[in-house]
Design a protein around this nucleic acid. Structure first.
Lengths: 146, 146
DNA sequence: CTCATTTATTTTGATAATCAAAGTATGAAT
DNA sequence: ATTCATACTTTGATTATCAAAATAAATGAG
């Protein structure tokens, strides 16, 4: 019983470290060598879809506003991200991806999809429900602790 | 179907970011304020149990030998970790935790245990098998990609 | 309307983690 | 003995990060 918890925990810890490391390596061999994982995760948080504000993205990534600014500077200079000054409130910056940014976004997304597909290999639909339940549990736990 | 994969993926991404952030905050409020999360993860990798070599730990953490050296220097100075020169091969450094290090290890471990307990709340024994299967899938995927 | 306050972002200055590459010490093998 | 390999450390440079101060725009009270 106790042992099972430890095994699952160790597996999660290992998996997390390995994912970051593999993503870093794949990135270095790809056409997007000029990005770090952190850059990639910023692009992922910015998203192809909404036009989030800088503050929203900083919060999601748990970065201070200043750090986010410099992240955006970097990504703007490298032509992955663009700043869009909001017209109703001219203090706020909305963030969007350039063509190159969207390309990167899709590539990263494809990797994650592959990963989740393999995660769910041979997992039956009702078993997926179990996994979703456990993840919800975890998210609740984290919410209580923040 | 596609949607489910996306939901699970987003949840995992969110969860991992949040765990790091929460651990960082808890640490800052604890008696172990002098440690960063990275320090804590090094202590976790060093473990209370085996006496791993510096190389082993570096590999587990995906750090270069040089970086591990400076991590160990830091943690030794703060009295969490001790170096033990191996007697059969005097090039090898084995790593152990001090009393303070073991205290930290247990505290961190307790947090993880709580987390996994809540993850597995209302999850039946045979459902746990599902989760273990999915994690094994993921570890295999990661092994193929490294 | 104007001044004070709040909000969103940027700038600045300092620090810590990291890497690659060179260095040191030890061990292994021919 | 000499060379090669291994385990770790040192060095020098770079990058991500933060806290705090600065800027710029919006909001609200009178």
């Amino acid at each position: 019983m106790k042992k099972q918890v430890k095994t699952i925990n160790d597996s999660l810890v290992r998996v997390y470290g390995d994912i970051l490391w593999i993503e870093e390596n794949e990135l270095r061999q790809s056409r997007f060598k000029d990005l770090t994982i952190k850059d990639m995760h910023a692009i992922n948080a910015i998203t192809m879809y909404d036009k989030k504000t800088a503050s929203q993205v900083a919060k999601e990534l748990h970065l201070t506003p200043g750090t986010l600014t410099s992240t955006i500077n970097r990504l703007e200079k490298k032509d992955y991200v663009k700043r869009i000054r909001s017209s109703n409130d001219r203090r706020v910056i909305r963030l969007g991806l350039t063509k190159k940014g969207r390309l990167m976004y899709r590539a990263h997304d494809a990797f994650h999809r592959m990963m989740i597909d393999s995660f769910l290999k041979d997992v039956e639909p009702d078993e997926i429900k179990t996994i979703e339940k456990a993840l919800r549990n975890l998210e609740n736990f984290l919410r209580e602790h923040s």
